[in-house]
Each structure stands twice: as C-alpha cells, then as structure tokens.
Design a protein around this nucleic acid. Structure first.
Length: 601
RNA sequence: GCCCUCGUAGCUCAAUGGAUAGAGCACUUGACUUCGGAUCAAGGGGUUGCGAGUUCGAGUCUUGCCGAGGGCGCCA
C-alpha cells in the first residue's frame, strides 16, 4: 500500500550501503515494527550487510557493526514525506508513519475499494484448482466437505490474488468398487428408486455399503457362506468386465445410479456456493489414458512386462538415477490391459495442459495420496511437460472420528448434510434466545449463514497438514475463534453504519488516535499482502487467521471507543469511515473463505 | 527397510530465518439505564520432544535419535 515510498527509501538505503563499500546486499524487505504506540516498518538489512563484511575478511563484530550501519543509514534517510521519524534500533532501520496520512490512505482505500479492496493485479497466468473428487455411488461425508471447502477457498483466494482461475471437479465414477454397487442394485433392488435427491443419494450409498459386506470375507466363515461370497464376487467382476466391454444393460444401470450421486453432489455444491467450471469424469479419461501408455512405451519411459504376465511399469527411481528408493516403480497398466488411477491422472494432466492451457495445476487431495502424485508429476516430467514443475499436490489431513477412520465401505461416516442440519438447528436455538425479534425468514437465512460458516471455519482454521478428529461440539462451536465471532463483528459494524444513515465520503485522522484505532488501521493495511501470501503459499489458513484477528481488533475497538457518540464531529466521521472500511474488509475476507457475511444475526 | 507429514501452554492450534513465541477452549475475577454481551477487560500458565550443526540471529534450515500418523509395482 506504501510500496512506492518504501521502494524509494530502499533505493536510498542500498545506495548508502554501496557508498560504504557494501554493494552486494540482498533485496530489502520491510516488516512491521513491534507495536509501540505508533506503527511503522523496519528492515534488518544492516545485519546482512555487516555479515557480508565479516565474510569478506573484515574483522568486525557483526551485531555492533550492524547497529553502526543502521545509525548511518537512518541518518542518511532523514524523514521522508509521509513518515515522522527514522530510528536505528537494535540494528534495525525503522520508519514510523505519519499517523494522519497513513490512516487516511488505508481507510480510504478499503472503504472506497469496496468488494475489490485487496484484489491483486492480473498476473496473466492460468491456474487450475482440482477439488471435489468424490466417488459416485457414495454419499458426501464430512471428509469430502473439508476437501470441497479447502479447494473452493483456495480457488477464490488465487483468483482474487490475480490469477486466471479454473475450478475443476473429477468424480470417480468407474472401477470395480463403483460397479460392485451397480451389480448389487441390479441383483437386489432393481426398479426401486426413492424420491428426492437427498434420499436417493443416501440410499445408493447404503446399497454400496451392503454390497461391500457381501463380497468381503468374514471371520469364522462357514463353507456355504464362503461359497456364496465367492459367487457374488465372481458376479460383480463379470459385471465390471461387461461394463468395460460396453454392455448396454450394465451401462444403462450404471448411468442411472451414477446420476443419482451426481445430482446429490450438485445439490451440495450449490449449498456450499461452489460453481465448478469443468467436470472431468474418470470414465472419460479411461480411453485416452490407454494411448498414453503406448506413447510412454514408445519413448522408452515405460517397460512392458506383459509377455511375462506382468503389468506395464515405469521405474522412476532408476530413470532419475536415484540410489535410495523414493518415487519407486509405478504400475501404469494392469497385466490385463485395463487402466489404473495413475494412468487416468496422466491423461487428465495432459488434457489440463493442452486443452485448458494451465500453467499451474493444484490438486486438492488428501495426504494419503502423496506418493501417487509424486509419481504422477515425475512421470509427466520424464515425459517432457515443463508444467510438471508447477503441479502441486495440496495434501490435507484426514477427517476421522473419535472412534477411528471414516469409511464409506464400512458405513461409519458422518454425512455433511447431517452436520449442516444440526448446525442450522443449533443456530436457531441461539437466535431464539438472543435475538427473538428476527422474522422467520431472517431466522432461516441467518441460521444457514451462521451454521455453514461455523462448519467452514472449523475446516479452514487449522493448517491443511493437520488431521482433524470430528467432534460435534467443537465443529459447531459459536464462541471464540469461530465464524460466528467474525460474522458478529460484521453485524455490529453493519449495525453502526445503519444507525448512522450515511458514511461521510472523506474524513481526517488528524487527531490523537487510540491504540485500538491504530491496530485496526494497521490490520486493514495488511489485507492485500495476506491475499498474496495465502495465494502463493496455497494456504487458506493465513486468510482464516487474518480475518479472525481483524474481527478481534474490531470487537475491542467497539467496546473501547464510541462512534456515533464520539467526542467531536471530526472523530465521529473518521470512526464511521473506519467502521465502513472494517466492515468491507471483513466482508471481503469472509467471501474468500466461502463464509457469508450476514447483516443481522 | 525406505519415503512423506507432524511433535509448541492442561487441551485444540498459530507464528515470510528477525525484535518480549501468540490465540481459542478450560479455569479465576470484573464489565450490560452506553452504537447488539454470539462481546470486552484482567490473571495464572512455555527448557517449542532430545542432542548436535549452519547463521550476526533457529519454533522455523541441515543432521542423528525418540515418539505419533500416513504411504510403499497391477485399490482409488
């Protein structure tokens, strides 16, 4: 926000260090100074300069020399326009902003920037974010919700940061597990079809769960049970073969039941306000991926062991000349000629690069598939795709239950819609107690906004590397570091602005600001940088943390300072502008987190 | 055996190599005739798993242990 001024000062610093015979300083980075009643920025460049001198042979004590350099540099800079003073402190060169100038600029930019405050300049680079890859014939559980929310939020952040962004979904709609469900449906439930998107999706997931039990060996199985299971297993494998051969009966039942799951997925994506640009289906990647195996064989990257009854493989470590096993050997085609998950991901990547012209490709997939993606990206590299270096697997930890891992096959899952419904009920109860004046329509809307927000923030407020153990009460908490806390700050700001009627178009901050005002303004000024940081590090967590801190600063300010009853007209106008700027920034941040910013609650 | 991720307050988690390691929950105390108390203010709480190394400076980077979770040629 003060890039121009700071770049000029950085130039002055580099020049004065050069005069002292220290030309090889790295780029000067500014960081906020520790809070001391007034805010500013500082640089540690003198440490690096002194260290460089020491390395070049001069006998200097680095800390002492750094402080000496800082003093010299500070003297050289003087007090540029917009800053009140320059101080050499513990070898840092610190610049302190002129309060009124800084405050006015930050608040004006945030308040008048509106929904675009914080948006980065277009980068001319296309990014594809792939997420929401649930298998069909399952039902959407809370683990899928973590994936969808994380992916959507990353897409929103990357897009807002200035990248041309494409949202992609990749449902797994084929393979033996999917066909097992289709077979069980045909065998035991043919013709049945529950009414309602939701009911049908759940029901087919139940069929899937039952089918899996039928073909899984039990402990202490009697001979006749074993025979029955083996017969069932042979049947479903025959169905899978028929699917592969394009058998019309199998394909028709597959298409019908598959659609039930896709309908349910579409409904949930609508609930989460997720608009996917491109749907890739695993079944559509199947055929193209077979051609890729041929190409990899022709180029000597893959080895065909089918003559000896083996599969087609890529010896990745060997190709890279690695001594220790790291990427290992990957199978890219079964001995019977059918494709694997990895084969299809190679085809998908090629399509992303060539048809959608993406320069960066982010895969939001859980951490257990890390090796799979390392292998896929390395094979793409061996194959000769330069974009392979910009493929990134955003691995996130699993969502489990206190009693252990969730498993669709075992049927012990927490469905997302159940969590959303429970969140809705709990918010309704809180509203009935705290804000009974809301109309039924408002209650309905607000309960959805707060309930879904609480779920989303629970997923976003821990680093994606961490596993989450799902617990109803902590996932649906409304106190402390939660979405409702942040939403409440937005509601309060909104309430003040509503009562004020109009916000002045301009305001002067030329009065002694309180510490709360200083902190709020400081946080507002950081928002654009947080957008960039979250986008470039692929870490929505940075935004989740930031928005919470902004809300906290606002709540404190709210209690400590009067806005409408401020001591003077000038201060009232300034604070109204500040409240408007904060409300806008909270709204922008929440939007990036896929959380609604309610007007009332 | 090898690879990946992680280890920070009683619990759950933060912290672009930088200044005094911060929040929430829980616990204790205080604040509603004041812009909405889903809030605020104050308090106790830490050898950042252990050791070494790199650096002017390490919770952060390297390395060795210890511990947890995940993964490893025809599941996805």
């Amino acid at each position: 926000m003060f890039d121009q001024e700071l770049n000029a000062i950085a130039g002055t610093i580099a020049a004065s260090l050069a005069e002292l015979g220290i030309p090889d300083v790295s780029e000067i980075k500014w960081q906020p100074t520790p809070f001391a009643g007034q805010w500013g920025v500082g640089t540690n460049i003198c440490f690096q300069a002194a260290a460089a001198e020491a390395r070049s042979g001069k006998k200097v004590s680095v800390p002492a020399r750094a402080q000496e350099l800082a003093a010299l540099v500070a003297d050289k800079i003087g007090a540029p326009p917009g800053f009140t003073r320059v101080v050499a402190d513990k070898a840092y060169v610190n610049l302190y902003f002129d309060t009124a100038t800084f405050a006015a600029r930050v608040v004006n930019e945030a308040a008048s920037g509106g929904p675009d405050f914080g948006r980065g300049a277009p980068r001319g680079e296309r990014v594809m974010v792939e997420y929401a890859q649930p298998n069909t014939h399952h039902s959407f559980h809370i683990g899928h919700a973590r994936n969808a929310i994380l992916g959507e939020v990353l897409a929103r952040i990357v897009e807002f940061a200035g990248f041309d962004t494409v949202r992609a979904s990749y449902p797994g709609d084929m393979g033996l597990t999917v066909i097992t469900c289709v077979w069980a449906y045909a065998r035991f439930y043919k013709g049945q079809e529950p009414q309602g998107v939701h009911e049908r999706g759940r029901w087919i997931a139940k069929v899937y769960h039952e089918a899996h039990k039928l073909v899984t060996a039990k402990e202490g199985e009697r001979p006749e049970e074993q025979a029955q299971r083996e017969a069932y297993d042979a049947e479903r494998r025959e169905w899978n073969r028929r699917w592969d051969a394009g058998d019309p009966e199998v394909r028709e039942l597959w298409r019908t039941t598959r659609q039930w799951s896709l309908d349910e997925l579409a409904d949930i994506l609508r609930t989460l306000d997720i608009k996917i640009d491109v749907f890739f289906y695993e079944s559509e990647a199947d055929e193209p991926s077979k051609g890729i195996v041929d190409e990899l064989l022709a180029r000597g990257i893959a080895v065909d062991e089918r003559a000896e009854g083996g599969p087609v493989i890529v010896k990745i470590d060997e190709k890279l000349g690695l001594k220790k096993e790291k990427y290992r050997t990957a199978v890219i085609l079964r001995s019977d000629g059918t494709t694997l998950y990895l084969t299809k991901d190679l085809a998908l990547a090629k399509q992303k690069f060539e048809q959608y012209h993406v320069e960066r490709s982010i895969y939001v997939v859980d951490v257990r598939q890390s090796l799979h993606f390392q292998q896929a990206f390395k094979i793409l590299e061996l194959w000769g795709f330069p974009q392979a270096a910009k493929c990134y697997h955003l691995a996130y930890g699993t969502v489990s239950l206190p009693e252990g891992a969730m498993s669709s096959r075992k049927g012990n899952v927490i469905f997302f819609t159940d969590v959303a419904d429970e969140a809705y009920r709990r918010v309704q109860a809180v509203i009935a107690e705290k804000n009974p004046g809301l109309t039924p329509e408002q209650r309905d809307e607000v309960s959805r906004q707060i309930g879904l927000g609480a779920i989303a923030y629970t997923m976003l407020s821990v680093d994606n590397t961490k596993d989450i153990v799902f617990d109803w009460d902590s996932a649906l908490s409304f106190d402390g570091q939660t979405a409702p806390y942040i939403q409440n700050a937005h509601v309060r700001a909104n309430s003040i602005l509503r009562k004020a009627g109009a916000v002045p178009r301009e305001a002067s901050f030329d009065y002694p600001l309180t510490a709360h005002e200083v902190e709020l303004i400081d946080l507002l000024s950081r928002f654009p940088a947080v957008v960039q940081q979250a986008a470039l590090e692929y870490k929505p967590l940075h935004m989740a943390t930031y928005v919470y801190e902004l809300a906290r600063a606002f709540h404190s300010f709210y209690h400590a300072a009067q806005v409408l009853a401020a001591e003077s007209e000038q201060i009232k106008n300034a604070r109204l502008r500040l409240v408007a700027a904060t409300r806008q920034t909270l709204a922008n941040g929440l939007r990036l987190l896929d959380i609604q910013a309610p007007e009332v609650m």
